[in-house]
Amino acid sequence: MIYQVSHKTIYRYRSPVSFGNHVACLSPRSLPHHACEWSELQIDPPPSNRHERIDYFGNRLTLFSISDPHSELKVEARSRVNVDSEFRKWGDASASWEETAASVPSDRSRSGLDAYQFAFESPRIRLNESFARYARLSFRTGRPFGEALLDLTARMHQEFRFDGNATNVRTTPDDVFRLKRGVCQDFAHVQIACLRSIGLPARYVSGYLRTYSAAGGAQLAGGDVSHAWVATYCANAGWLEVDPTNNIVPSEGHVTLAWGRDYGDISPLRGIILGGGREHSLEVRVHLQPAA
């Protein structure tokens, strides 16, 4: 499946901004069976300088500054991504989850070492016993890893309600867990907290979602904005992805943008501005369409 992605962000400021320094994490990663054929970032007003770099987690960042006074900042990321059906196919996840979890700390393979760092608290995801208790209802003794993971995802989908007004970007996983409401970002954070609380590495994946299913079925939630889901590490099978918002295993319909420990590592656009008044409005429009 080949997609054309357009991700447009518009900031409108109360008063003119005289200088702005920004970081965008808006260029999709290229991965096996997930090729970002091209991508570009259009910035208006034109930046006085821009640089690209790869961050710690391998994501592509664009850094730019704008030194002309402006009251509106438009950033449009466009890309073409080819996702084939091999991508995200789960390997063998039938070993018991405890076995898998126990193998992580001593796994000195490159991927094991890499995965291990996602097993701990991160700035926005603090762990506690209630996450672990919740996770253990699915991760029961001796249960195969994959089965337990799907069960946790299904339970979350059932017990949490999608509600765009209940939370904001600062809401903690703890609050979401109590409210049982939120958006994809919140659900991903909660599920990551659950997995890490029982010793499993889990990372936060941001990206886009095709909003209609290929078979013409029901609309999926989380489209037309950025989406977020979860990947967790299983020694034999590698990284397994689940989408707690929609209770599905991501496949051809998900386009990966970036990943990190939590939202904070890969927020799509952040910056420091001079001026701009106390408030600004933000508009985000995402379009994902199959390319001809």
């Binding site: 961050d55 000195r108 291990y116 760092q117």
Partner: peptide, 26 residues
């Protein structure tokens, strides 16, 4: 390279849970 962790001299956990470990420096 993180050889010291690969060689098992110090546990990786120590590093990844250290608030002063700056991933940006990688």
């Amino acid at each position: 390279e993180r050889r010291i962790i690969k060689d098992g001299i110090i546990p990786g956990e120590l590093l990844y849970t250290c608030s002063q470990f700056r991933r940006h420096m990688r």
